[in-house]
Simulated scan of single mutants.
Amino acid sequence: MEGNHPPQVSTWQAWVLAARPRTLPAAASPVIMATALAWAERVFRLDAALAALLGALLLQIGANLANDYFDYQKGADTPERLGPLRVTQAGLLTPRQVLTGAGVVFGLAGLLGFYLLTIAGWPVALIGLASILAALAYTGGPRPYGYRGWGEVAVFLFFGLAAVVGTYYVQARQISLSAVVTAIPIGLLIVNILVVNNLRDIPTDRASGKYTLAARFGEAWARREYLVLAVLTYLITLGTVLLGWLPKGGLLSMLSLPLAIRLTQEIWHLQGRALNRCLAGSAQLALAFSLLFSLGIVIEKWLFG
């Protein structure tokens, strides 16, 4: 389904494609880590955790739909696109349908946000509103920041800091150093998903005037960026555990290092559409890291109290 010829699919299948389910680990991973940390620190709250998880997934789907619409409107999505199929460009859904769908999904996320507001107060409303505005402004509006090289910063802030600290806050009603520290490595891994996406799209992004960091500085720079962020992920995790800022069980996340090494090697050798494999792999890496990290601190707490 990633070629230039659109597949024959039903309307329901088109909506599933538009939601881009392979991107959802990026939304779930930070929530999983924050919830495990909350459990280990005895501030876990099931309803808040589930609402945060569902809200994060809805925000990701809404952002995917909005990007599908706005990239099509701005000419960034063309038949020459090498990435996974975009439903608006492929004619599977109309622009109006996709924009309406984004509005509905963001509305549902807002309802969950209102529920979390009743639990944890006004900071939740600020995070939720900022997340929706950031999703829309990434490719929408007169000056989309995703077209000007600010995508990595936004992804780190919202998929790292806001997602982890926000999920922890709605359960604990406070912010801890451990929550802030936990946000850093998973934020960096999720940024790398965007790095692969932008590396693959350099030719079409430059042609459409979409100047991501990869489009500005080139393929070699983007590959080095991926390597540096991957190395920092594991060094920061190791360092913060050794400093006592995170539970020792978090070191179980190191078992995902072989996957990170393999992906980094592939990114140095693959180009174009072949990078879609690395894109999916980078999302799987973030999920594997988060699950291993979470399992480690839960086991540690269970065994040693």
Score class of each variant (00 low, 15 high):
residue 250 G to M: 02
residue 149 G to T: 08
residue 92 L to N: 05
residue 37 L to E: 04
residue 201 D to A: 02
residue 280 A to I: 12
residue 199 L to T: 05
residue 242 L to T: 11
residue 80 E to G: 01
residue 151 G to E: 10
residue 122 W to S: 12
residue 299 I to H: 07
residue 65 L to P: 00
residue 303 L to E: 09
residue 61 I to T: 08
residue 284 Q to C: 07
residue 240 T to N: 06
residue 152 E to K: 05
residue 199 L to N: 07
residue 223 R to K: 15
residue 243 L to I: 09
residue 222 A to M: 05
residue 154 A to V: 15
residue 3 G to F: 03
residue 3 G to S: 10
residue 67 N to V: 03
residue 295 L to E: 09
residue 133 L to F: 12
residue 39 W to K: 12
residue 284 Q to L: 15
residue 12 W to C: 13
residue 101 G to A: 11
residue 188 L to R: 10
residue 196 V to M: 00
residue 182 T to V: 12
residue 137 A to K: 11
residue 59 L to S: 01
residue 149 G to P: 03
residue 132 I to R: 01
residue 169 Y to F: 13
residue 6 P to Y: 06
residue 6 P to W: 06
residue 208 S to M: 03
residue 294 S to I: 05
residue 226 Y to R: 09
residue 191 V to P: 04
residue 128 G to C: 05
residue 235 L to H: 01
residue 195 V to A: 11
residue 151 G to H: 03
residue 158 F to N: 05
residue 22 R to A: 13
residue 260 A to P: 00
residue 242 L to G: 01
residue 139 T to N: 08
residue 40 A to K: 12
residue 74 K to W: 07
residue 6 P to Q: 08
residue 251 L to R: 01
residue 133 L to C: 14
residue 20 R to M: 03
residue 248 K to A: 15
residue 273 R to D: 05
residue 179 A to E: 11
residue 18 A to V: 00
residue 254 M to D: 09
residue 149 G to W: 02
residue 287 L to D: 08
residue 248 K to E: 13
residue 68 D to N: 10
residue 256 S to H: 02
residue 7 P to L: 00
